[in-house]
Write a protein that binds this DNA or RNA. Structure first.
Length: 563
RNA sequence: CGGGGAGUGGCGCAGUCUGGUAGCGCACCCGGCUGGGGGCCGGGCGGUCGCAGGUUCAAAUCCUGUCUCCCCGACCA
């Protein structure tokens, strides 16, 4: 491609409101442009990178037997009412000219399952893996960080359909293997983590994470361990605790309504206190969650432990049912049950709220002084351990996920089949997503330097940039034209900077765009019979350059060695 | 949804407090010079100051309303 003809609007300065590195660089390099909150166009060069990611995904999903198809974005609302997902706030809802209710697909479980329900009759029709690349629409409460979280994006979503749970396991493992190959091929630093199944329901899920500062997810890591902090469990860091007193002993703590204040007044570490977090469950019951004063409740783990949704109790509800906010404790509760976090040592003597103003209790022992059930509901923190190894927590972008859906959609949408005994059974489903745009953004985040983007070879919009120096019509420009023809004939995707611009501008733009290899052909090169070559990653000059004679071959060989 | 910030030419900004009819850098166009790291000189084009209403002789500037965008949090199927 001739750069003089390419729509590549580079900018010296990033948009003032850009925060994330990938946001700044993708805009500056002329790869994407914004049209509204969470609404982005991919300009020609950016789209090439996106489609590189798409093609890698396509090849690997085909390889496990996936069959590519295409389903519409605009769907009848009926399907979503059947599946019970019509009320989701993020779902765009609209009416057609006849007034019929429609939705814009935020994912395609309803659509694909409806087809399967119509088409699959027999166990002989299974298993199946179907997929497509299709636009998803989500009315996000807060789009952010350029293309990292948008309201409209393309997703590869595949769906597996099996006769039984064992079949689902097999399809799931096929996808795990394909995903590993996909992300390896993209050149990203990535890992697979255990994840929450979320409101998708189902029995198992993994997420694929690309670590980078702009990531929205937090991942807990230790040797042999990786989990989204949403569900991560780990051994808490120890705290020195006294033995229980013969019976709980009131202590005066005037005005001490926070952990910090109690800890300060009594001269004990926050971890020696039991924090009380009152919640009201969806079924109307109230639960007092008790955990170490230095720990935080993890809402997702708590929801999973309660097996239902919940909300924090309002202060007036608390005051009415339990005691004054700030002085809550598990001893002497009326109706509420106590859920004790698993990190609380039940042999120790704790300091808890007394459910009376300005008073705490000392020496409280779980079990003796109050009844409880146990669950792991706290948020892990850096320094906690897994198998004796301290964990670290780092931000990451979710670039893919896989879910075992089970019967979540097949039952409401009627996807069933007759087994070999003539028995009607529901189809076991899995769903598997990948966001190519996030792969692209993650690659930018992970590999950029102060000069710009540094594409992994697999995602670069073009294989290399050929920079022609000198005035138009001078011999070095003519030689550059010949090199352009030769390199293309050898099958390389060449971006040819044939613009009438100064060398500095061309070099800066080349570094900003970040193709893996830059060839420079100027008067010097022509005189020496060699072309200068620089590898973008690390801006490494190739010693002595490459011979102008048979340039395509040496470029091709060098190309194979690049990351 | 809660909190914070911002809308002035393609990008980045000043001007707003203290009202007087819009300016700077880059980019862009023309001419010339330069030609290995965003070069130099000269001449130009381009803006309903987000939108609506109000106050005023006069509004980018003051008042009211409204829309949009960004950041933090909540949320994220």
């Amino acid at each position: 491609m001739r750069m003089s003809r390419l729509l590549l609007p580079t900018e010296r300065q990033a948009p003032a409101d850009a925060e994330a590195l990938s946001h700044k660089l993708l805009v500056r390099a002329g790869l994407v442009r914004q049209l509204g909150a969470g609404l982005w166009s991919w300009l020609p060069a950016g789209w090439r990178a996106h489609e590189k990611a798409v093609q890698i995904v396509r090849e690997e999903i085909d390889e496990i037997g996936g069959q590519e198809m295409l389903m519409p974005v605009l769907l009848p609302a009926e399907l979503w009412k059947k599946s019970g997902r019509y009320e989701i706030d993020e779902l765009f809802k609209l009416n057609d000219r006849k007034g019929a209710e429609m939705v814009l697909a935020m994912t395609h479980e309803e659509a694909v399952t409806t087809h399967i329900a119509q088409v699959v009759r027999s166990y002989r029709d299974l298993p199946l893996i179907l997929y497509h690349f299709q636009t998803k629409e989500r009315d996000e409460p807060r789009p952010r960080a350029g293309v990292l979280r948008t309201r409209e994006f393309i997703m590869k979503d595949s769906y597996s359909f099996d006769r039984d749970p064992e079949g689902l396991d097999a399809s799931y493992e096929l996808h795990r293997a394909a995903y590993a190959r996909i992300f390896d091929r993209t050149g990203l630093d990535w890992y697979e983590v255990d994840s929450d199944v979320g409101m998708m329901g189902g029995t198992g899920a993994h997420e694929y994470m690309a670590p980078c500062p702009a990531g929205e997810n937090e991942v807990a890591l230790a040797p042999g361990f990786a989990a989204n902090v949403e569900i991560a469990g780990a051994d808490a860091q120890p705290v020195d605790l006294p033995a229980p007193l013969p019976q709980p002993e009131p202590v005066n703590t005037p005005g001490a309504t926070t952990i910090d204040e109690v800890s300060r007044q009594l001269g004990v570490p926050a971890g020696a206190l039991l924090k009380a977090y009152p919640v009201i469950c969806d079924d109307g019951s109230s639960v007092l969650v008790a955990l170490r004063g230095d720990h935080r409740v993890n809402d997702i783990k708590l929801r999973n432990a309660l097996r239902q949704g919940f909300r924090p109790a309002q202060p007036d509800e608390v005051a009415r049912a339990i005691g004054p906010p700030g002085y809550l404790g598990p001893v002497g509760l009326g109706g509420a049950r106590v859920l004790l976090d698993a990190a609380v040592d039940t042999s120790a003597g704790w300091i808890t709220g007394a459910n009376r103003p300005d008073t705490h209790l000392r020496g409280v022992q779980a079990g003796r002084d109050f009844a409880f059930t146990v669950a792991d509901v706290r948020t892990v923190e850096a320094g906690d351990t897994v198998n004796g190894h301290a964990i670290t927590i780092e931000p990451a972008i979710e670039i893919g996920n896989i879910f075992k859906l089970g019967l979540r959609y097949s039952e409401p949408l009627g996807a069933d089949y007759l087994d070999e005994h003539g028995q009607q059974r529901s189809v076991w489903m899995g769903s598997y997503g990948i966001g190519p745009a996030r792969i692209v953004a993650a690659a930018v985040e992970q590999h950029a330097d102060e000069n710009g983007i540094s594409w992994p070879r697999a995602l670069a919009p073009y294989d290399l940039e050929l920079v022609a120096l000198g005035k138009p019509d001078q011999p070095e420009r003519i030689a550059a034209e010949a090199a352009y023809v030769e390199l293309r004939a050898a099958g390389l995707d060449v971006l040819f900077d044939d613009r009438d611009a100064g060398p500095g501008e061309k070099f800066k733009d080349a570094e900003l765009l970040g193709l893996p290899l830059r060839l420079t052909l100027g008067k010097r090169s022509l005189d020496s019979g060699r072309v200068e070559a620089q590898i973008r990653r690390g801006l490494q000059d190739v010693e002595g350059g490459l011979p102008l004679d048979d340039l395509a071959q040496s470029v091709g060989e060098l190309w194979k060695t690049l990351a």
